[in-house]
Computed example of a mutant assay.
Amino acid sequence: MAALTALAERDPKAAYDLGLRLLRGDGVERNTHQAIEWMRKAGGRGHGAAQFELGRMYLVGIEEMGPDPAEAESWLTLAAAQGNKEAARLLPQAQAAKRDAQGNYQARKELRDSWYGWYIHAPYYWVWGPSGWYLR
């Protein structure tokens, strides 16, 4: 593991390989967080397969990590630019998911803002006075 880690620091193919091994638990203890970190290092250094796999993972989410359409779009765009046909096919799905997520965020913000207005201005039924609690 130490030798592969040292090699992965220098070589994007080794970083991708280490990410796969950590993702699968192949010869190492399974660790999705570290797997994604190594995949990101490989993808950041131009490794097309890592970029595609990251895009796919961020599009669907894996284990404890939910989907992140914006990240998916970024990685799939990089992979598609390198000629990955599957990345080009998934890219519109990531873009649509990103738009939906932004729309859902706006709806949640409006709901949160309306709740906050209620929260600030709603009167209490019971209030505390000199002789204890009483109903208004």
Rank of each mutant, 00 (worst) to 15 (best):
N104V: 00
Y119E: 13
L23Q: 09
E63F: 06
E29H: 09
K41Q: 15
A35M: 00
M57A: 11
D113W: 00
G46H: 08
R24Q: 14
A122D: 10
E64S: 08
E63C: 05
A97I: 01
A88G: 03
H47P: 03
A42L: 11
Y125L: 11
I36S: 10
A2Y: 02
F52V: 08
A96G: 01
A14F: 12
R24K: 14
L7V: 03
G66E: 05
G27K: 03
A6D: 12
G55S: 12
A94E: 02
K41A: 15
I62Q: 12
H47M: 14
Y116K: 09
T5A: 13
G44I: 10
R10V: 11
L54F: 06
L111H: 02
W115P: 01
A81M: 06
Y58P: 02
R45V: 02
Y16I: 04
Y125M: 08
D17V: 00
P130H: 13
K98Q: 10
A97T: 01
K109Y: 07
R136T: 15
R56L: 10
R99F: 00
A2D: 12
A107L: 06
R10I: 08
W75G: 04
D100H: 07
T77D: 02
A88I: 01
A8L: 08
T77S: 13
Y125E: 15
Q34D: 15
A15D: 13
I36W: 06
P92V: 03
V28M: 04
V60N: 09
K109F: 08
L22S: 09
A81T: 06
A97V: 01
G46Q: 09
I62R: 05
A8G: 13
A72E: 06
D26E: 15
G46K: 10
E37H: 06
K41C: 11
L59C: 05
E53R: 12
H121N: 14
T5M: 08
S131M: 09
R99Y: 00
E64T: 10
L22T: 05
P69F: 09
A8T: 09
A14S: 15
I62M: 05
Q93Y: 03
D68P: 00
W118H: 08
K98V: 02
I120F: 02
H47L: 13
T32F: 09
Q95V: 03
E71G: 07
Y16E: 08
A94C: 03
G61F: 01
S131V: 08
D17T: 13
A6T: 03
D68R: 07
L20Y: 07
Q95T: 03
E86T: 05
E53A: 06
Y105D: 06
P67T: 01
K13E: 15
P69K: 11
G19C: 11
G117A: 13
A35G: 14
R89I: 01
G132P: 03
A50Q: 12
V127E: 11
K13Q: 15
A81E: 12
H33R: 07
Q51M: 05
A3F: 00
T5C: 01
A3R: 06
Q93H: 04
R112A: 10
L54S: 03
